[in-house]
Design a protein around this nucleic acid. Sequence first.
DNA 1: CATTTGCTTGCAGGTTTTTGCAGGTTTTTA
DNA 2: TAAAAACCTGCAAAAACCTGCAAGCAAATG
Lengths: 249, 249
Amino acid sequence: MLKKERQALIIHRVNLHNKVLSSTLSHEINVSEDTIRRDLQELADEGKLIKVHGGALSRSFNNHFLPEYEIYSFSQKKAIAIKAISLIQDGMFILSSGGTTVIEMAKALPPQLKATFLSGSLPVLMEYMNHPNIDVIVIGDKLSKSSKITTGGDALQKIRQFRADLCFLGINAIDPQHGVTDNDWDVVQLKQAMIESAKKVVCLSIIEKVNTTQPIQVCPLNKIDILITESNPEDPRLRPYVNAGVRVI
Amino acid sequence: MLKKERQALIIHRVNLHNKVLSSTLSHEINVSEDTIRRDLQELADEGKLIKVHGGALSRSFNNHFLPEYEIYSFSQKKAIAIKAISLIQDGMFILSSGGTTVIEMAKALPPQLKATFLSGSLPVLMEYMNHPNIDVIVIGDKLSKSSKITTGGDALQKIRQFRADLCFLGINAIDPQHGVTDNDWDVVQLKQAMIESAKKVVCLSIIEKVNTTQPIQVCPLNKIDILITESNPEDPRLRPYVNAGVRVI
DNA sequence: CATTTGCTTGCAGGTTTTTGCAGGTTTTTA
DNA sequence: TAAAAACCTGCAAAAACCTGCAAGCAAATG
């Protein structure tokens, strides 16, 4: 049995019974207790469970205080996610495209948030699905394997039916002159529809993609209300956007 | 054996068993372990699987954090999946509901299969998405957190637009007298719509659920064309269905 | 057709990870 | 408080890993 496999089993056991004993696990999985102990230690270091003398306990079971250590290990995309989340308020209706940045945002949504999210991106939807309080609406249509979102006339039509408070776009390229650009026609169409259906358009992008271009234009700069990167708004690379009237966070 | 071919085989293996060992693969395919390792590394970079020390794990394995032997009645569901797949032919248009049995089927689809699958179940769609050749159509609507499928008028309407060759239903209860029954009104509506839109209705169920009932009727027995369980068709528990004209596999 | 170019593969070597065990320490419990 | 259980540290063997390299092969090029 592979190490990771074993650790996954341990976690599952912990979540199921709220506690495990090293001796039991050792006997069941047929490895030495030392190995189990080391597994428990590693999982505890990762915050997946709480190690105690003789075994381990589930974290959710006694999560009176959830350590915030993770906040310090934020990648760039998580930093963007935090800024994006600050724009969301209870009761809002929110459109979102796909992309890893948006996935990070979905992961980082505070548990008590109550809002309605709409997307056609399967990975993003999976994250929304795990959230306890938000409502999720799936945009259906043919699934594009490459971008992992639904594309087509049905999807466009459905988006146009809505009038959202916010629209989060994970973007591939942005440039003061050409605005937001992308390289997949289907995705561009979807994003355009989302922009038209939202009161406020928020673009999420790592700073690396700022001031680059792609072949197809999604929208000019004046359609964008807010631009979020992991850098701070004074970054000279972001100056042109501030000057163009975009709110940069 | 070509590289792509080998990698396709590896992916299929991973999806089928949820894990692979470098040593086993090396021995089976008759290439060096280094080559296997490089394959695993590449596939991991593409996000097709998760590489670990000693081999690789399927992505859904880590997402759901359920080792295969922990999924309720895992091997039975796998057996059902294999039988179900034998009904599928290239070019078919196939409706499918949600449920772990259907997920197993999705994982076990042969890589070269070309067909169109339609579903509203997010976990099932995730599996379909990982398949290289099939077309996937997402049924959109409000997402039900409990069942992880989309439910509502839009979903129903969309299903009714189609005319599918096959419909795979993962069912919760079946009984000679009451037919297929379930306990979630939204899910029942969806299944009914799927039944009406398909030429052939195939029910997938572990034998344990056969001859049990739930509160809400999905359909009477005469709507069902094929019933698949992990048991063989001569099982006395399946006799009533054979007598009622259902094809039992 | 010959050559080049680039990809793939196996292998040699050196490194890292994993695991069980021994021996000694700490914690629990009766 | 003393025995038992659990723990930690260090160690060693096996397995898995990585890096660089060269032979083999295939497609592309002149």
